[in-house]
Design a protein around this nucleic acid. Structure first.
Length: 735
RNA sequence: GCCGCCCUAGCUCAGUGGUAGAGCACUCCCUUGGUAAGGGAGAGGUCGAGGGUUCAAGUCCCUUGGGCGGCUCCA
């Protein structure tokens, strides 16, 4: 006699076990119609699943077109779509295509499959597959679950000869796989693990078991194929079975699905728009930056136009930092290896750093002495007894492995391109004495760092190997930590506000409660985590707490900004660090005249200038606010007869500090407007004989269909200069 | 780093074994025009690089650099 509790707290009692559909129907016919699945005590189940005990039940419904779908509804739709796509692919390409693994993802779904050698599968087939999918949706076949005992199920799968499905089943049953002995258990989560220890295997037929297509599957699914709405096959990629490159190579077919064709169309349109906004495309068209293969992958050359944007941003940020009491420093791009051994960066993160720079003489001598490469590496990575002792004494525990400690004459010294700015800043802090009265010390630098990102990860300006962080290190007392974190967040707020980026959230990275890898006292951690949480809360934007996401040396806050078309971008972080002051033996004199350890806060709220500019390019689609526009005003004479007056206008704009250009080509004005519009120039000052006579310009603003009318030259110059100075987010000059 | 695809003029792209093309941009000429491309002419490429197959390679094969998509990784 189940009594179910609905999300709103209401309860309903039934005198016999009921299906999810019956529960929905008992609430309302509309709900029953929209229902896709049920959530029973937090667990997603088929709508047809019987509920025979007291439980909390929520109905998962399909969204109406245009309405935001719940993640669960989309996941159901997409997982079901993966089945339909797999069936369609087997119909189109043949049953010898073996299915492996097909989950829903954030933006759709994929299905990994093994395509026999000699069989061609390319995007040419997408049309036929999409067509077959549409037919299956129209047939409105019910997703039918049936369960068989594990032994019987395994036999069935073995008979079908698909080793991937056998493997899936064995993993689901919690058995060691007979097929896959790989090193990673990447697929354990959410797939096999959830069903581990189950005594049965579940299958889903798309229609009638034994008659229609079916697949080993944990489920749940939407009730029937028509409920999927709309599906599209998107792309092909290759993938390894279980993500293990020593295992079989499979073809991964990506698709996406939505509750309605309208939603799918909206998604496709959004993707198109995103492609139009791609900073690599716009960066080329507007000459904002250049990457040259002769210079190197992932190394940004800032061309004059892009440099203007970066410079404006940096001046803006620097101004805000001054208001907050930061002091600016400059440090070189390299430092001795020893410095990074002290900080702990080298060699622990060597795979993401550029190789050390070793002096030529040293290399030649070692080479002449017959030193092997392995020995050389060992001696480069070694640390002196002095350094090891110093760090171990300060931390009170072994932080440097004994095997790495070498006598001085065995060590090979060298330099490293800096992967972080903090060691240099720590040395600046340590270069003068500090007292609690002069704390905090806030050292800011647009510091360029170099990291060895894997080549496959590089992407335009957003993933690069050399980048300039809007970096700063705040050396403060423990008591000052909350206020300093607060200060970092208020800076972010000001800058996002100015750029018109209202939609952002923060993630607070906390300790993993089950780990003891963390440095610093529990008491301090509690305080710092509370400070991060409080600061995030006070920001007035959504925030999430993520246990286990903290670094071993302290909690952190990450910023994630949403651009105008809804994509999220991870920018920078604020990170509390209890470890660095210890490693560098930093101190200040407390009020009791004893030496105290400062706490260090790393913060680069916008990440890097490269990434931030890349995000801004996409956010604005190249149509920057006046203050960031490389070219702010273009003067367009109607004909050569007004060139002279146009030059006067141009000179007046330049004299006012505006970035103005003049187009004296012998195009007609229509052509000049088109050319300027393509470059997203904010204001066009069009001048003809009338204007020359009246001392006016005819104003046309970016995005306006037609001209805004004439205004006195002086008034325009003044208004434009004022808008520039105010860093207005939108164009506002009008006659 | 791994897998797949791609690289032709400054830009966007056509050209699948037989004399390198188009549009835009550029230069010059005509046109002197009032709000998203007036007209004409010219110049511009050892087809990413190196090697191979072939009578003949932009086109086929190998190596290599770079890009894109995906995987993996990320202090």
């Amino acid at each position: 006699m189940p009594t179910i509790t609905l999300p709103d707290g209401k309860t309903k009692s039934f005198d016999k076990p009921v299906s999810g559909l019956e529960v929905a129907a008992s609430i309302g016919a509309g709900l029953a119609k929209a229902a896709l699945a049920v959530k029973v005590d937090g667990e997603l189940r088929d709508l047809s699943a019987m509920i025979d005990r007291d439980a909390g039940v929520a109905i998962i419904t399909a969204p109406k077109p245009g309405q935001a779908a719940s993640g669960e509804a989309l996941q159901l739709i997409r997982h079901s779509a993966a089945h339909v796509m797999a069936e369609a692919i087997q119909d189109v390409l043949g049953k010898d295509v073996q299915l492996a693994y097909g989950p829903a993802t954030d933006t759709g779904f994929f299905y990994d499959m093994f395509v026999p050698a000699g069989k061609k599968f390319s995007s040419d087939e997408f049309g036929a597959i999409d067509k077959r999918i549409a037919e299956i949706l129209k047939e409105d076949r019910a997703f039918t679950r049936y369960e068989v005992a594990s032994v019987e199920g395994l036999k069935k799968l073995q008979a079908e000869g698909n080793k991937y499905k056998v493997d899936n089943a064995e993993r689901a049953l919690g058995m060691a796989s007979s097929v896959y002995q790989g090193k990673k258990a990447a697929f354990s989560e959410g797939n096999a693990a959830a069903e581990a220890r189950s005594a049965v295997l579940s299958f889903y037929a798309t229609g009638t078991p034994g008659k229609n297509w079916e697949d080993l599957c944990r489920g749940p699914h939407v009730p029937s194929t028509s409920r999927i709405g709309a599906v599209k096959v998107m792309s092909l990629a290759s993938a390894y079975w279980h993500g293990d490159e020593t295992s079989d190579r499979l073809i991964r077919v990506y698709g996406t699905a939505f509750a309605s064709q309208a939603d799918l169309d909206a998604y496709l349109k959004q993707r198109e728009e995103a492609a139009e906004r791609d900073h690599r495309k716009i960066g080329k068209a507007l000459h904002l930056f250049h990457i040259d293969e002769d210079v190197g992958q992932g190394l940004i050359l800032w061309t004059p136009n892009g440099s203007i944007i970066r410079k404006e941003l940096q001046q803006f940020i620097a101004g805000e930092l001054r208001k907050q009491g930061y002091t600016e420093v400059f440090t070189p791009h390299i430092g001795r290896l020893e410095l990074y051994k002290t900080s702990g960066h080298f060699p622990y993160y060597k795979e993401s750093q550029f190789s050390p720079i070793i002096e030529r003489d040293a290399l030649e001598q070692l080479s002449a002495a017959g030193c092997s490469c392995a020995e050389m590496i060992h001696r480069v990575e070694g640390v002196s007894e002095r350094l090891a002792k110093g760090i171990n004494e300060r931390t009170g525990k072994e932080t440097i492995e004994k095997s790495r400690v070498l006598p001085d004459d065995k060590l090979i010294e060298g330099f490293m391109l800096k992967p972080m700015n903090c060691p240099h800043h720590a040395k600046i802090f340590a270069s003068s004495p500090h007292s609690y009265r002069t704390m905090p010390v806030r050292l800011a630098e647009f510091g360029t760092v170099y990291r060895w990102e894997q080549s496959g990860e590089l992407n335009g300006m957003t993933r690069v190997r050399g980048f300039t962080q809007d970096d700063a290190h705040l050396f403060c007392t423990e008591e000052q930590v909350p206020a300093e974190i607060q200060g970092c967040l208020s800076l972010v707020k000001v800058i996002f506000g100015t750029l018109g980026m209202k939609d952002y959230r923060v993630r607070v990275g906390l300790r993993d409660p089950d780990s003891n890898k963390y440095t610093g006292s529990k008491d301090n951690w509690d305080k710092a985590e509370a400070a991060c949480r409080d600061a995030a809360k006070s920001l007035g934007v959504p925030f999430s707490e993520e246990p286990g996401e903290a670094a071993f040396y302290g909690p952190k806050i990450d910023f994630v900004v949403k651009d105008v078309i809804g994509r999220e971008w991870q920018l920078g972080t604020v990170q509390v660090d209890y470890n660095m002051a210890i490693r560098f033996d930093l101190s200040y004199i407390g009020s009791d005249s004893s030496k105290k350890r400062p706490v260090v806060i790393h913060r680069a709220p916008f990440g890097s200038m490269e990434r931030f500019c890349g995000v801004l390019i996409e956010h604005f689609a190249g149509a920057f606010p006046l203050w960031l526009s490389p070219e702010q005003v273009r003067v367009l004479p109607i004909s050569e007869k007004t060139n002279e007056y146009a030059m006067k206008v141009h000179a007046a704009l330049q004299a006012a500090g505006l970035r103005a250009e003049i187009d004296t080509s012998n195009d007609r004005v229509q052509g000049k407007i088109k050319a300027a519009a393509e470059l997203r120039v904010p204001y066009l000052a069009i001048v003809g004989p009338r204007d020359a006579e009246n001392g006016t310009i005819s104003l046309r603003a970016r995005g306006e269909e037609k001209d805004l009318g004439a205004m006195k030259l002086e008034a325009f110059v003044e208004a434009a200069a004022a808008e520039y100075l105010s860093r207005a987010a939108v164009l506002g000059v009008k006659p």
